[in-house]
């Protein structure tokens, strides 16, 4: 079986800066790590790979610095890593990202099982997985919290939704997005790290993928960030400090008092 994991690299820092011009993230100067939620997808894939004769590829779209994140995936157990990198990919929204990823999958495909994390910790949209699935025309199961059985003719998974837990069986090819409940990602071993250091990260640009500039990057993105602003003081807080605190507590008490009475009647 051929397994593919979609990885996003996120900056290895808590403090992200935004470009005030176009509202995209400034990624230069900080190392990158695999989006923590994608690690669960990668772990799922590695476990499946280890259970039989399967080939595991990871793919990411991003700047050259994203290599670092892909090396970590190899250190953990991926067989090969592909970085989709091209200046023309810059500024892509989720649609253009999915377009680029699905072009790579179309070119290399077919993959039997495609795994993605629930969402990225920076953008928090969770859209690239289902968008890619729809572009490829494969079934999509999101919010997978458990992989129950990886069979010859399909995969059985559990998904967690608002009102309960569903168990689905889907034949390959299929795209799954997993939540962090699905497993605990492993740490890479020293041996893995050494192997990853010299591993070849395959790179593909827009030409190799046969993508028109009008369908990728900022140009190919239907959405535009038009304004970035720090939310203005939406509320003017009355502040209580030092000796006024007692007054503040009294006000809070008065505010909550009606609920107290309701509850004790």
């Amino acid at each position: 079986m051929r397994i593919l994991v979609l990885l996003k690299q996120v900056p290895d820092t808590d403090e992200v800066k935004l470009d005030p011009e176009n509202g995209t993230m400034i990624r230069e100067g900080v190392g990158t790590v695999i989006n923590p939620l994608d690690l669960h997808a990668l772990e799922s894939a590695i476990r499946i790979k280890e259970s039989g004769e399967h080939e595991l590829t990871v793919v990411s779209m991003g700047p050259p610095a994203a290599e670092e994140a892909l090396r970590e995936a190899i250190a953990m157990g991926a067989d090969r890593a592909v970085l989709l990198t091209d200046r023309k990919f810059a500024g892509a929204d989720t649609w253009a990202t999915a377009k680029t990823l699905s072009a790579m999958i179309g070119l290399e495909g077919p993959y039997d099982l495609i795994l993605a994390g629930e969402k990225a910790t920076d953008g928090e949209t969770g859209q690239v997985g289902p968008e890619t699935g729809a572009m490829l025309g494969v079934p999509v199961i999101t919010y997978v919290s458990r992989i129950i059985e990886v069979g010859e003719d399909g995969i059985v998974v559990e998904r967690e939704v608002e009102d309960g837990r569903e168990t689905w069986k889907v034949p390959y090819p299929v795209l799954l997005s997993v939540t962090k409940n699905v497993n605990e990602p492993r740490l890479p071993t020293l041996k893995g790290k050494k192997k990853a250091r010299n591993a070849n990260i395959e790179k593909m640009g827009s030409e190799a993928l046969g993508l028109e500039p009008s369908t990728i990057g900022l140009m190919g993105s239907p959405t535009r960030v038009v304004k970035i602003n720090t939310p203005k003081l939406s509320r003017q807080a009355k502040l209580y400090e030092g000796s006024e605190l007692i007054e503040g507590i009294a006000r809070l008490k008065a505010l909550l008092k009606p609920y107290l009475e309701v509850n004790h009647e």
Partner: peptide, 26 residues
């Protein structure tokens, strides 16, 4: 990298079962 590889290999030589590497924030 050089330092941790040496440390890890020395540890395995001294009876460590494996050496896992945590080199990023996660």
């Amino acid at each position: 990298f050089d330092d941790y590889v040496k440390l890890g290999e020395s540890a395995i030589e001294a009876g460590g079962l494996e050496a896992f590497v945590a080199d990023n924030r996660n």
